[in-house]
């Protein structure tokens, strides 16, 4: 199967999945108690606008969807626009189209996510390899203890500790906002810990498994220096499973981390997503949800392509799932 056919099939499947995601999200939104207007009335309500201000808002979104048309028509109207990447204006921010909100928020979330994940990898791979090579030594137990601690610490707590230290004690970093590269430092640090811990664990266990492989012994039996054998023969093979975790991890961070973005007042996508869900802002929620799904699927596609690069067996089989199937089939089991 050629690469283009493979890619075509994958894209087709992505379109189907996106359609399913849109239906499920829309249905769940309909099932959720309350609607946008109700929630606006309650939260912004009578006190501030004298009870009539909400009527304007209701009119604003009624211009496209109308409050009285049935849900399935609202869905179709939304999807008609979505196909051409036009999600329409948000209910809550009537002056902005959802795709513009995404275009503003996503680069910010993605930048933080990419830096955080890259940094996590840079820290996690050496730690994991080190712990695996010295399995059951005090060094191994020590690093694994710290790693467990890292997994247990939620990123907003790390964020608060960072603010206490860098802003309140040292006074070197701004506590919130988004006005330059140094505003990125603390959010990134807050985000790094969790993924680092998760990745280091994976690297360690994967490395341990690989080190037991006979080809590692065979490479040593050829006279390979231990470090070379670990780097060339073991590391590459033990990174293959890591790539699987990396895709979804990157996707979830890229689409915004609600807590960290809220804590540091970063205008990223996570913040909008959380607001949209809370206020039943249908276009914004549907738009961001579909966008998240798209990112996640793209990441999985990239993961599979990277898999193929790392493991020639998968490249030859034409994709991970096909390769896995061929592994399971006893008839095609290689001798």
């Amino acid at each position: 199967m050629s690469f283009m056919t493979y890619l075509g099939k994958r894209v087709m499947r992505m379109v189907l999945s996106l359609t399913a995601v849109s239906m499920i999200t829309f249905t769940l939104l309909q099932l959720a108690p309350g609607n946008f207007a109700d929630i606006q009335r309650i939260s912004a309500g009578a006190a501030q606008f004298g009870g009539s201000g909400t009527e304007d808002m209701v009119h604003a979104f009624a211009s496209r969807y109308g409050d009285d048309i049935p849900a399935w028509r609202q869905y179709l109207i939304f999807m008609k626009g979505a196909v051409t990447w036009d999600f329409g204006p948000s209910y809550k921010y009537p002056t902005q189209d959802v795709q513009d909100i995404i275009a503003q928020g996503f680069p910010i979330s993605a930048t933080i996510a990419l830096i955080a994940v890259a940094l996590s990898l840079l820290i996690a791979i050496p730690i994991g390899v080190y712990a695996a090579v010295r399995q059951n030594s005090p060094a191994d137990h020590g690093t694994m203890f710290l790693i467990t601690l890292g997994t247990a610490l939620p990123n907003y707590l790390t964020g608060v500790i960072l603010v206490l230290f860098f802003t309140l004690t040292l006074g070197v970093l701004p506590s919130s906002g988004w006005a330059g590269p140094h505003y990125m430092i603390m959010p990134v640090l807050a985000l790094v810990l969790g993924p680092t811990a998760v990745l280091a664990r994976y690297v360690r266990s994967s490395m341990l498994e690989t080190l037991r492989e006979e080809y590692v012994v065979a490479a040593l039996a050829k006279g390979g220096p231990r470090s070379t054998v670990i780097m060339r023969h073991a590391l590459r093979n033990s990174l293959i499973p890591i790539v699987t975790v990396l895709g979804p991890l990157l996707a979830s961070l890229m689409t915004g981390t609600v807590f960290v973005e809220a804590l540091f007042r970063i205008p990223g996508l996570g913040l909008y997503f959380a607001q949209a869900a809370a206020s039943r802002d249908m276009p914004l929620l549907m738009g961001t949800a579909l966008f998240f799904a798209l990112i996640l699927m793209t990441m999985n596609l990239i993961v599979d392509l990277v898999y193929g690069y790392l493991d020639p067996r998968i490249r030859a089989a034409g994709g991970v799932s096909r390769w896995r199937r061929s592994q399971k089939s006893p008839l095609r089991q290689p001798a």
Binding site: Y215, V217, A218, K222, P334
Partner: peptide, 14 residues
């Protein structure tokens, strides 16, 4: 030199 029982396992697949 050393030769192993199963080349599938003794040769690095990647």
């Amino acid at each position: 030199g050393m030769v192993f029982q199963n080349a599938m396992e003794a040769l690095n697949p990647t």
